[in-house]
Design a protein around this nucleic acid. Structure first.
Ligand code: MN
Ligand code: MN
Ligand code: ZN
Ligand code: ZN
Lengths: 151, 151
DNA sequence: ATGAAATTGCAATTCATTTTCACTTTATTA
DNA sequence: TAATAAAGTGAAAATGAATTGCAATTTCAT
């Protein structure tokens, strides 16, 4: 998994080179932090997490870093039915889909090749070329089912 | 399909009763128009479509009508990776998922019981109770593949 | 060291959506 | 039917996430 982090960081360095971007300690810190912490960050989440360890980084920088990461395919955006966008590093985990708990907000990742195959079959039926997909299952996670439900 | 429209309209009338809402010609027109036109409306889309046939209906009214329709389960919201929410009547078509063409914006609907079963299996594996799901396949539709690609 | 170009933080802006509020309409009651 | 309470409406203001403009700062090839 350090391998994967390194690959992601290399990808970012390559991206910078291609686009003639310069280096910056602040951005590097954000990028690094994001890649290492394998989470589904809100901009606010990431901003707060980063700020705790290294003050003096602004929201703008976080927004801009996440945009770059998305552009070069290191980060993936999702919405999960909220009003804010979430970002997660994908270089390291490969494609997967999500179970989202509506009680505690937990996000569980899964992969299912059979489903992916069936998606291709559906697409073929409509002569549709799939370039991306999104599958989200919403509900209640294991932990949230245990405690006696009130109300 | 008139049956289904009628059922949706009845559902809305019931919802009004339950919540002590009053009647309004404008709202009724929006609701009616939305239910009849089986489309994936943007608020703007619906506002324009409605305004063409019956001027003097404001954005506020459209927004508010769509909120009510969503609350009582007649309309479903989706985002499809854009910055605006889309609404479609679901009472009439039942559950389905979507193929979204990134070139022309066309939205194709499909149902696949096998996929739904596999989703249940995934959920069971994680002891997760699914209450809703969302599957979207993005790409290029049949029609958009035909013309010689330029660039 | 110089200068062009990128980066940054802050404030201002954008854009979709929600809310506020004065006014109108509806429905219930006397 | 008149009075009244509550809901509906449009226009404007407010909100909230995300983007952008800009002056100051930093990077880096020369
Ligand atoms: Mn994930
Ligand atoms: Mn649909
Ligand atoms: Zn949970
Ligand atoms: Zn198309």
């Amino acid at each position: 998994m350090n391998r994967k982090n390194d690959r992601a960081i290399d990808a970012f360095i390559r991206h910078k080179a291609e686009r003639g971007l310069k280096s910056s300690g602040k951005r590097a810190f954000v990028v690094d932090f994001f890649i290492r912490a394998n989470r589904h960050f809100t901009v606010e989440d990431l901003y707060n997490a980063v700020k705790a360890r290294r003050p003096g980084i602004s929201y703008s920088t976080v927004y801009r870093a996440l945009r770059l990461l998305t552009e070069c395919g290191i980060a993936a955006e999702s919405m999960f039915g909220e009003s804010v966008t979430r970002y997660e590093p994908i270089e390291r985990s490969g494609h997967h889909d999500h179970l989202i708990c509506r009680k505690c907000g937990r996000i569980i990742e899964f992969e299912n090749l059979e489903i992916e195959k069936l998606q291709q079959r559906v697409a073929r039926k409509y002569r549709f070329t799939v370039t991306a997909h999104r599958l989200e299952l919403y509900g209640v996670c294991r932990e949230c089912q245990r405690p006696a439900r009130r109300r």
